[in-house]
């Protein structure tokens, strides 16, 4: 494991911790898209179907458990916890699941390494992760007051993706024959989706003003 990969994973973990901090201590999920959170839960469930029969390392195993547990608990909080649920911007979070899930499933059935259930689900999870942030970005754009934790959450998620790109570049040059087209293209698309957000996030940080995305 190289430093970019580790930094990427830690950034991913921090993004989840920031979100849990907001939900658990402030008891608020204002500005957070439940649709994106449910899509992430689906991403982890479909990607880690092999959690018990493919062992790569303790690190991978524990991280998989953490990602599964945290994503499911975030969904539980937003749906079932009374105070948290009250703060959910339901009317603004209108993105339709089927526009995301169905194309990803079809694409995974057509473009994959092997036409088996686990392999198609794993490929589906990559495509789904690439676009799962869309409901969250739409919600951000509609929210006039983006609070700091929400902004940081999305920023950390984007940073995690950027670090994974660097990890692949590093691996390409250090591991002979390291080529993963499906992972790379899905990852590149995912990172590009954050470009616009990054631009306004850095601008607001530089000018020391509250983050607001143009309509």
């Amino acid at each position: 494991m190289n430093v970019f990969r580790l930094a990427g994973d830690m950034t991913h973990l921090s993004s989840i911790l920031v979100l849990l901090l907001k939900i658990h201590t402030i008891k608020s999920c204002a500005g957070i898209s439940l649709k994106t959170q449910e899509l992430y839960a689906l991403v982890f469930i479909t990607r880690y179907l092999d959690i018990f029969d493919r062992f790569t390392s303790i690190y991978n195993f524990l991280m998989k458990l953490i990602f599964l547990g945290s994503s499911l608990s975030i969904v539980w909080y937003m749906r079932r916890h009374k105070a948290v649920h009250r703060s959910y911007d339901k009317d603004q979070d209108t993105f339709r699941y089927q526009f995301i899930v169905l194309p990803c499933l079809l694409l995974a059935l057509v473009i994959n390494h092997k036409l088996t259930f686990k392999e198609v689900m794993w490929t589906f999870s990559l495509y789904l992760e690439a676009v799962a942030i869309l409901p969250q970005l739409v919600l951000l754009q509609r929210t006039r007051n983006i609070d700091n934790l929400t902004g940081q959450y999305v920023f950390l998620l984007g940073a995690y993706r950027a670090l994974y790109l660097l990890n692949w570049v590093y691996r390409y040059f250090t591991e002979p024959g390291f080529v993963r087209w499906i992972t790379w293209i899905a990852g590149l698309v995912q990172t590009l989706l954050y470009a616009d957000f990054f631009y306004y996030y850095i601008l607001s940080w530089k000018n020391n003003v509250k983050l607001e995305l143009p309509a």
């Binding site: 092999d50 790569t56 991280m63 390494h113 994974y164 080529v179 993963r180 992972t183």
Partner: peptide, 10 residues
């Protein structure tokens, strides 16, 4: 063999 090799990442 790409499919199995690809899964050492999260």
């Amino acid at each position: 063999k790409q499919d199995s090799e690809a899964k050492d990442e999260l």
